[in-house]
Simulated assay, not measured.
Amino acid sequence: MVKGSCHCGNVAFDVEGEPGSVIECNCSHCSRKGYLLWFVPRDKLTLHTPPEALATYKFNKHFIDHLFCRNCGCAPFGFGVDPKGREMASINVRCIEEIDLSTLQRIPFDGRSR
C-alpha cells in the first residue's frame, strides 16, 4: 500500500500495490504535465478526500477524467476504462509519497499519434 496526495494535501489517497513500471506518454497533456502513470483497477485506489475537492479536465476523445485539486492544481490521478471495459485509475506516481523515481521502469507510450 502506498500513500499519495496533491501538493497542498487537500487530496489524499492510498493505492494497493507497488509500482514497478510506469507509462511515460508523449501526448500533449501528459508531456506538458510530466506524468509518469501507474495503471491500477479503480477499486485499488481509496480516496480520503471529498469528491468536491477535485475538479475534472477532459480532452481529445473525453475517455479519461483527469482529476486535479481545486486548491493547488496538482493532478494526482485520473479515472477511465481499459479496452475491456474495466474501470481503471491512472496514478501519477510523482504524487506518491517517498517514491524513488529512479527505481521505476519507464515504458514509452506514443499517445501523440493516437
Rank of each mutant, 00 (worst) to 15 (best):
T49E: 03
N60D: 12
S113P: 13
F39C: 05
C69S: 03
Q105E: 13
P19L: 05
G20P: 02
L45M: 11
R112D: 14
A55S: 14
D100I: 13
A53T: 05
P51H: 08
T49L: 00
L36Q: 12
Q105R: 12
A89C: 07
S102F: 10
F63C: 13
I91P: 01
R42C: 03
L36A: 07
E24I: 14
S28K: 11
F68Y: 15
M88R: 09
A55M: 07
E97I: 10
G34R: 10
F109L: 10
D100N: 13
H29Y: 14
P108H: 02
F79R: 14
G80N: 12
P51K: 07
G78P: 00
D100R: 09
I23K: 04
V40D: 01
K61S: 14
K61R: 14
P19H: 03
L67G: 00
K58E: 14
R42E: 07
R106H: 13
I64H: 01
N26H: 09
P19G: 03
E97V: 12
F39G: 04
D14Y: 08
N92A: 12
R32K: 14
L67F: 06
T46M: 02
T46D: 06
P41G: 01
G17R: 04
P83L: 00
A89G: 04
G80W: 10
S102T: 15
K58G: 07
A75W: 08
I96D: 00
G78S: 15
L37F: 10
H29M: 12
E98I: 06
N60K: 15
F79P: 03
D82T: 03
F63R: 14
Q105I: 12
L104N: 01
I23P: 02
K33Q: 15
L101T: 12
I96A: 01
T56R: 13
V22G: 02
S21E: 12
L104E: 04
D14M: 10
G80Q: 07
V15D: 00
R42H: 07
C30R: 01
P76C: 08
D100Q: 09
V40R: 04
M88Y: 06
K44G: 00
C72L: 06
C72Q: 03
L67M: 10
G78A: 13
E98D: 15
E24T: 13
M88D: 06
F77K: 02
G78T: 05
E97G: 11
G78F: 01
V15Q: 00
K44S: 13
L101M: 14
I107H: 04
Y57T: 11
K84P: 00
G17K: 02
I64F: 06
E98N: 15
F109E: 09
E52Y: 00
S21Q: 14
L54P: 04
N26Y: 06
P76H: 08
T46Q: 07
H62A: 14
A55N: 12
N71F: 08
N92M: 01
F79D: 07
R86S: 12
R70H: 06
K33F: 10
R32G: 08
P19N: 06
K84W: 05
L67Y: 05
E97S: 13
H62F: 13
C74N: 08
R106N: 07
L101G: 10
